[in-house]
């Protein structure tokens, strides 16, 4: 039967195909470039731009461009450009570290809940529900207020309150995938539970988890900025949110003192969100043509 000679079509390995889709999207690529640029600015920038963000270097409220300070000075006469350059390091570091913490907790809880079901799922999902009801910012405020504001405590606080969405997504993916025949087939051919969870199901559940985690990085950065805005940041490091919070009473005199750090947050988080959208398009099989 000639019509049954099944077609031969060679396609690239799926992962390589995904990278292609991602890089072909201009917005995702732009986002990635901005994100890399901001990271370089934060981690390497201070070597070249040596003004200390805590030094009162000039008159307060010196407008941008005047007197050699590109973005002006704040209410104490500190250089805003230096604050933004140094703040980038804190924002990026806390953003990624806190998102990793969330991702770790969320994937762990979601995976075990989804895989084992029964009372294990019941207990784990009750905990997740609870963290979804808890106003996260307020809870993080309480943690930081009680345990002191260091970069570590802030990272842990953000990470510990933001994992619920990852847990929900992981669980629902696990619930769906564990019923699929290939998981049953793998079980029938002798795979252990841990093998099934981490080597069989998790790779197939990865796409939405990765996208959600990317979004969490952005959310963690705004979260940190919010805490800092309220005065709950590590006093030993500069943070964008803290610059806005400290200057906000003087907005009548110097609008730029809140505008520039705000733009820094906005652009960074926007870049992450573009990367997230790009990942979504690349990883979502619905959008990819067969």
């Amino acid at each position: 039967m000639s019509h049954l000679d099944e077609q031969e079509e060679i396609q690239a390995k799926p992962s390589r195909e995904m990278v292609g889709v991602f890089l072909r999207s201009y917005s995702a690529l732009t986002g990635l470039i901005i994100l890399i640029a901001v990271s370089i600015m934060g981690f390497i920038g201070p070597i070249f731009y040596t003004i200390d963000p805590f030094d009162m270097v000039w008159m307060p409220f010196s407008p941008p461009g005047a007197d050699g300070y590109l973005l002006g000075t704040d209410y104490l006469g500190r250089d805003i450009l230096s604050q933004i350059i140094n703040g980038a390091r804190v924002s990026i570091a806390i953003g990624f570290a806190a998102a990793s913490v969330s991702c770790f907790i969320g994937v762990g809880i979601g995976a075990f809940a989804g895989f084992y079901g029964g009372w294990i799922e019941e207990i784990l999902m009750r905990i997740t529900e609870f963290f979804q009801v808890l106003p996260t910012l307020l809870f993080a405020m309480v943690i930081v207020a009680l345990f002191g504001s260091s970069v570590l405590s802030i990272t842990v606080a953000i990470g510990a309150v933001s994992w619920a969405s990852v847990a929900r997504i992981t669980r629902s993916e696990f619930l769906r995938i564990k019923e699929l025949d290939f998981v049953q087939a793998s079980k029938a051919s002798g795979s252990s539970d841990l093998n099934l969870i981490f080597l069989v199901i998790l790779p197939n559940a990865a796409a939405p988890i990765i996208v959600q985690s990317a979004l969490l990085v952005g959310a963690a950065i705004t979260f940190e900025a919010g805490l800092a805005f309220l005065g709950l940041s590590d006093p030993n490091v500069v943070s964008w949110g803290q610059v806005i919070g400290a200057n906000r009473t003087y907005i009548l005199d110097a609008t730029y003192t809140v505008t520039f750090p705000g733009i820094a947050i906005f652009v960074t988080v926007l870049a992450i969100s573009l990367v997230g959208d790009g990942l979504n398009d690349a990883l979502n099989p619905k959008l990819r043509s067969r």
């Binding site: 979004l215 952005g218 705004t222 900025a225 919010g226 805005f229 949110g241 806005i244 919070g245 906000r248 907005i251 809140v258 505008t259 705000g262 947050i265 906005f266 652009v267 988080v269 926007l270 969100s273």
Partner: peptide, 12 residues
């Protein structure tokens, strides 16, 4: 909505 911190939007 995702990228702009709400306190910043508020100040603006």
């Amino acid at each position: 909505g995702y990228a702009a911190p709400v306190f910043w939007t508020g100040i603006l």
